[in-house]
Amino acid sequence: MDGFWIVLTGFLVASSTGMLGNLLLLRKMSMMGDALSHAVLPGIVIAYLISGSRASFPLLMGAIIMGLLTTFLIHFFSNKGKIQGDAAMGTVFTFLFAIGIILVTKYAGQADIDADCVLHGELAFVPLQKSSYLGIAAPDAVWTLLLLFTLIQLVFWVGYKGWLLTSFNSEYAASIGIQTALWHYSLMAATSVATVVSFESVGAILVIAFLVVPAATAFLITKDLKRMVMVIIVQGFLSSLGGYMLSNILNASISGSMAVISFVGFSIVFVVKKRGLKSIP
């Protein structure tokens, strides 16, 4: 049963972050996931220090605020400071991460928090904390991620037209009066939320992997947004299952194994696609 919950958790993370990663990939902003997952650290630590508890809600708020601040700062640096985009991103998130690490180290004595536990959440512990709603006893993480999953489905499908337009052709979207900045910031907000909620249970590295690898796999296969989502969900499920099995064999981190398997999936599609293209001249 533990295995089931772990695979389900991985799958939920993969499908929620994967759908956002899809939009990030189309906007050529894939490294944003990496940037956000590092940059929210000071937000989490400050929220923890203020609230004094490891309850999810304050930490979540701290992280989301910090995520939006990161987006804003990157925008400010590249627009007002005229720094090239990737350097602006690199400067902002490494700076914020450094602040986060300093805070963690400084208050390590009085707080039950360390960089390790924030960044490398462990999937193996997911089944330990359970609570039941509607007569079903499921791990806390599954409930939270289920909520996140629903939320992201809602955001994605309700705004489907907007996402489609702003992702594939933002200039055209702007010209017909769509608030591209608003969509951009909504996507960033959603990414911050998803990143933070997920890496509480699976760790930052798997979040970064699931943000980009399934989306990239889907992008290799199709350019249709709906089909991409389907590929992402399948890829996410297979990676979670395969990763769990691999980690059992190797007796190693489940999150890391899932990231590795997800890359294996990507590589297979990559090779097949490349061979396929060669055989059809």
């Binding site: 990496d34 798997l206 970064i208 989306a215 990239a216 890391g256 990231a259 590795v260 890359f263 990507f266």
Partner: peptide, 24 residues
């Protein structure tokens, strides 16, 4: 696939592998 995605893909998979090895 554009370079930003390629960077993120390689980063996360190598680091994931690193975590697997570290925990092993």
């Amino acid at each position: 696939i554009k370079s930003d995605s390629a960077l993120a893909i390689v980063l996360s998979s190598f680091f994931g592998l690193g975590i697997v090895l570290l925990t092993m």
